[in-house]
Design a protein around this nucleic acid. Sequence first.
RNA 1: GGCGGAGUAGCUCAGCGGUAGAGCAGCGGAAUCAUAAUCCGUAGGUCGGGGGUUCGAAUCCCUCCUCCGCUACCA
Length: 510
Amino acid sequence: MSAPEAFYVTTPIYYVNDSPHIGHAYTTLACDALARFMRLDGRRVRFLTGTDEHGQKVEKAAREAGLDPQRFTDQVSQRFRELLALMDFSADDFIRTTEARHKRAVQALWRRLVERGHIYLGKYAGWYSVRDESYYTESELVDGRAPTGAPVEWVEEPSYFFRLSAWQQPLLEFYARHPDFVLPPSRFNEVVSFVRGGLTDLSVSRTTFRWGIPVPDDPEHVIYVWLDALTNYISALGYPDTESELFRTFWPADLHVIGKDILRFHAVYWPAFLLAAGVEPPRRVFAHGWWTNEGQKISKSLGNVIDPHALVGTYGLDQTRYFLLREVPFGQDGDFRHEAMVRRINHDLANDYGNLAQRVLSMIARNCEGRVPQPGPLAAADEALLARAHALLPAVRDAMAEQALHRALELIWELVGEANRYVDAQAPWALRKSDPGRMRTVLWVLAETIRHIALLSLPFVPGAASRLLDQLAVAQEDRHFAALGPAGRPLAPGTALPAPRGVFPRWQEA
RNA sequence: GGCGGAGUAGCUCAGCGGUAGAGCAGCGGAAUCAUAAUCCGUAGGUCGGGGGUUCGAAUCCCUCCUCCGCUACCA
């Protein structure tokens, strides 16, 4: 028996100077659905998320809160942990950049880059904004302020630089060898064209604040944001111990899921750091889009930030998960609209999926003594529906392999539609008197189809799908994809079933 | 300014050389097992404008317009 194929998926680490919002929830949700899918598909999965806790803004916010930075980050990091419970995220590890394991990894990576001659000491000068934690060039300023409107001051400081300029060609060659390194393809084009335009060396240390990881052998400097933050993906695997079982199993990462705003750091800087350190770059970076709220850009000043707690509280967890993953092709921007949410809840979930299960399970409860019916010989229509059900896993697997989460759901719902059409065509309620044997066959075929739908929807709507599997009396140990298909674990006739209960209630406008 | 993407039915989009498609909305009908859910039928849109290639273009080429992303630059 061969070892299960590994799958390592990560969210970005979230900056603690912000409360969890729909963007964080969305990124983590996508990773969660992928991680759940891969686990059910028999792969050995590691799903990492965490928090980014260093930097001047955090230092300042802590001071304002009257706390030392560590206490402060302990508190705010907790809010991101709570998001995991709120949305039933199945992360295997949660990393914080203030942890010892991370500091050790970052300093080791730094030393390695120094040893290999990729880091040198220089001087950094420019217009600096504390608020943005960013330097601007003279030409970027607008009326003496940052493009963001933040005040700036002229700052000169000694700084260590990473020789990014030396990595233009190696990166371009790397991209050429890995045309799927960045998805969606349009983002890949942006990255390649950015690198083609030339790269300048990257400032990787600061002396203007203390809250960070000290530069080894030069404690006046603190390691600057990206070299610190990006390293989390390997520090969580125990870097620099690259010979450990953990590291060897899961690195290189299969997938970094990110928002499109941090694409450059993940698709240019990160592989450059790793190539320079002699570590293999990740296999893929997927940049997803942004949500607007009822057509409006989301911002704190507009006061239209979407709180995940509110979403889950209002619409329900499975409903929220389904909407976010189904409404918008993964990778594109999307618009969050109450009306659209209600349509998805009532049509896709309640009417199509929930009602399919309910009508079938009710008929079984009433006409088959509440037990999985015994099928007779299968007719062509039965074989056709079952064939569709059996073909679903490979199709969904292909969609998931390219992070087409919306497409995966679409495929599942195509089977839901087939099953509803089959119910109408076979009209088991009419067979009840005319041909009870045939009715039992039809209901068994439907129950078996619903089992496939429930198992395959488990990564997306885990709560409802589990409840549906309960109603089909599917044992816990049979809740994985190897149980699908004719060679899997079809429903055994005679198995007693619990009383059916709706899994997706309709939305009632208050 | 450069690079890339997009402009197709009311809305969201697929199609990417061979007589215009899906979902949603709308309209008409059937059914009644079910969460008043389901199923069937119904889309007459110059495929952004113009020009070209081709037996034939939404689909290739040129050009113009509009929108979006990335990037650069300017006194």
